[in-house]
């Protein structure tokens, strides 16, 4: 599998280079890109069966106009830039990944960017694999973060009360902006409820490390976490 990936990756990168992606004349390394992608996995899936999570899935990214999945709830910033005609290519991805908010102000993507050109090139080479035709080549399981997923299905199945969530959210919005901005503290609005619940339980069980979040999540019950997830999932910017 790995060997096939490398071969495919090499072929694609060569293809890209001939298309004239000046920034990528050196080419990216697919395996190194897979490692870089670990930074993205918390929010994005890619590969066979990938679905929208906190961020949209990244299959078929290349050549696609930005913010065009109807079923995904994009930030207004992204809707604007998609409407403005941004299409994802190696060059536009390179610019976006270097400093996401410089390109799309008020994106909900809480990620400061990849400062090293090499990391970006490797990541772009990795992502390029999943935009082949037919889509989703190579056939692999979608990437996702495994550590947060060992949660009792009964907890995930709880339906939260958004009114209670709205009240409880007061404890969140002192730091996390309800309009979805991000200036050093991540955006938490419009996440899929499941991701929200998984993340909060991961803090509660101290699998995720952050003292404030461990403390806040630590005294939230299952119903309260479900209520918060229900509320934040439906907020409008």
């Amino acid at each position: 599998m790995v060997r096939v990936t490398q071969i495919l990756g090499a072929a694609l990168v060569a293809g890209l280079a001939t298309l004239g992606g000046a920034a990528f004349a050196q080419g990216g390394n697919v395996d190194a890109g897979a490692k870089v992608f670990k930074k993205c996995k918390g929010c994005h899936q890619v590969g066979k069966g990938a679905e929208h999570r906190i961020g949209p899935h990244l299959n078929g990214l290349f050549g696609r106009k930005a913010a065009t999945y109807e079923e995904f709830n994009y930030s207004k910033g992204f809707q604007r830039i998609g409407g403005g005609g941004l299409v994802w290519h190696a060059e536009s991805l390179d610019a976006f990944l270097e400093n996401p908010r410089a390109m799309v102000s008020r994106t909900r993507m809480s990620f400061p960017g990849l400062k090293k050109a090499e990391d970006r090139a490797n990541l772009i080479a990795y992502l390029r694999q999943f935009s082949d035709n037919p889509a989703d080549i190579p056939e692999a399981d979608p990437t996702a973060q495994g550590v947060d997923h060992d949660l009792d299905p009964a907890i995930l199945a709880l339906k939260g009360d958004p009114e209670y969530g709205q009240y409880l959210s007061g404890e969140c919005t002192t730091c996390h902006q309800s309009a979805g901005g991000d200036d050093g503290i991540p955006s938490i609005v419009l996440w899929p409820e499941e991701d929200f619940v998984l993340a909060m339980h991961a803090y509660k069980s101290k699998h995720r490390i952050h003292p404030v979040m461990q403390m806040i999540a630590g005294r939230l019950g299952d119903e309260e976490i479900a209520a918060l997830a229900a509320y934040f999932a439906t907020l409008e910017e």
């Binding site: 919005t173 002192t174 730091c175 902006q177 309800s178 901005g181 991000d182 200036d183 050093g184 503290i185």
Partner: peptide
């Protein structure tokens, strides 16, 4: 981030 958050809140 907190400063932006609390002033907006």
């Amino acid at each position: 981030g907190w400063y932006s958050g609390i002033t907006a809140d």
